[in-house]
Design a protein around this nucleic acid. Structure first.
Lengths: 214, 214
DNA sequence: GGGAATATTCCC
DNA sequence: GGGAATATTCCC
């Protein structure tokens, strides 16, 4: 206790500078599908096996395209049989495609299985969190009631629904923000307590020393 | 039908057989989950393997109960590790339970994992089609918006409007709260800074004193 | 390509 | 137990 000036870090005070970073930005993870697909590309789709992986272009099952802004499934058959079951609970190419569509990927070649998404690029794992599922809007009306008169501009019910969607989204975000802020405050208070505690101990200690030395 | 057979061969996964069978037949099929669970019981949960299956009661993993009006998972661990992955795309006992609940099965013993459903009985495969998923009623309103204001005669448009009002109100409150929290945080940080500043001065001061006194 | 049913996971 | 998000399947 005497020489604990150096123990500031142990008390957690040293985290002052960096402790915010954990919470200020949403630590939200990318969707499992996106992470798996990204990893699968990093790993060449071959997964983990003992053999040295041949990196010959003509042996590739799946890979980033030249500029890293998209990817190509060179061999759908091998991809389905070997790659998919390593990362997912199925081996159906069409289920994989369905997921790509769900997350807004676009097929960018009619000649081969090449896909891209604005936020899905080689070396940009951090962008994955930006990709969201296209959700069939939870409309106020059940789909089987939806009239077929939807081509022209918005019907009023759609508009109401749309407003509501926006409000709910904003609402949700605000609540998340609130939680984060509350956590930050809790942390702040905890640090205050520690600092005060430490300070009082230090004062006691200091006074004792001075007294003895006098 | 021919197509289905072809698919099965390509998939090369016997377990999926029940999944694809007879889509063109008139009478609706039971849900895949129910059929698999039923088959699993008929087969003793051991699935297809070369060895003769020991039918000793004390070696059973899962079986119908005595009167055939329910079934018991005698060994959840083995059931999860051995049985589940043979019939489903997972090996989580809790996911299996989740499905049982979804289809309205009831746990009928607190001492062991025993479940029943009115329409799920030994020798009554034909009753399976009667079992349906309990679905969160396809209400016109998202569940999280459901207020308790539904008994009184509200039209849906009134309700939509009402919901929007509520949302906007909540939204406004959340924003005010956010501001408040942000101010609290600013204050906290200021206090932290002062405490740290004071502490460092105190330390310096203390060391000087001690040095002089020595 | 995407809507919708079912399955699986995650979380309260 | 069950609501809800995500995954997988099935179908148009």
């Amino acid at each position: 206790m005497g020489d604990n000036v150096l123990d500031l870090n142990l008390l957690g005070v040293g985290e002052l500078a960096s402790h915010h970073e954990g919470h200020t930005l949403r630590p939200r993870n990318p969707a499992p599908f996106l992470l798996k697909t990204y990893n699968l590309l990093e790993e060449g789709g071959g997964g983990v096996n003992g053999e040295a992986e041949a990196e010959d272009d003509n042996k590739k099952i799946v890979s980033w395209n030249v500029d890293g802004k998209g990817f190509v499934v060179w061999s759908p058959a091998e991809f389905s049989d070997l790659t998919l079951p390593r990362y997912f609970k199925h081996n159906n190419f069409s289920s994989f495609i369905r997921q790509l569509n769900t997350y807004g990927f676009k097929k960018i070649s009619s000649k081969r299985w090449e896909f891209k998404h604005e936020k899905f690029q080689r070396g940009c794992k951090h962008l994955l969190v930006e990709i969201t599922r296209k959700k069939g809007e939870p409309s106020v009306f059940p789909s089987y009631l939806k009239s077929s008169s939807e081509e022209n501009g918005m019907t009023s019910s759609m508009e109401v629904n749309n407003n509501q969607q926006i409000l709910m989204e904003e609402n949700k975000n605000l609540k998340e923000e609130r939680l984060e802020l509350q956590m930050q405050i809790a942390e702040c208070k905890a640090i205050e307590m520690k600092l005060l505690e430490y300070l009082s101990q230090f004062v006691d200690n200091h006074q004792n020393k001075v007294r003895r030395l006098c």
